[in-house]
Amino acid sequence: METMDTDKAAKKAAMKDLRAQRKDLIEAASLQMKKQKKDIKAIEAFLTGRAATIPDIAQGIGLPTDKTLWYIASLKKYGRIVEGSKAGAFFNYALNEPANNTEQEEV
């Protein structure tokens, strides 16, 4: 039991050192993650109860269309969004409901 506690403490200290070493990278990654989280939340909120094309989503949430597609492609890959019917030259995208927390990649 004592050995386990010592191991845990040593791991905690090592992680603290590692975080100090990678401080700049961690800060940059955290900022990036927060921005991404906000963008994805906006996309999901926009798509709640409706399907929309990339230009519509982009206009609705104020993101460039290429960045919106970048997110949609990723969300689709991890099963959060599904592709729907065609609207002119574009495709509609909708939330994959019911919300499923255990993400699975599409095959």
């Binding site: 230009p55 982009a58 290429d66 597609l69 492609a73 689709k76 592709e83 574009f90 495709f91 599409e106």
Partner: peptide
């Protein structure tokens, strides 16, 4: 592929 179909990377339009 990234979109599972051929669409434009800038806006998702199917190219003509």
């Amino acid at each position: 592929g990234p979109y599972n179909r051929v669409i434009r990377p800038s806006d998702g339009m199917e190219p003509d």
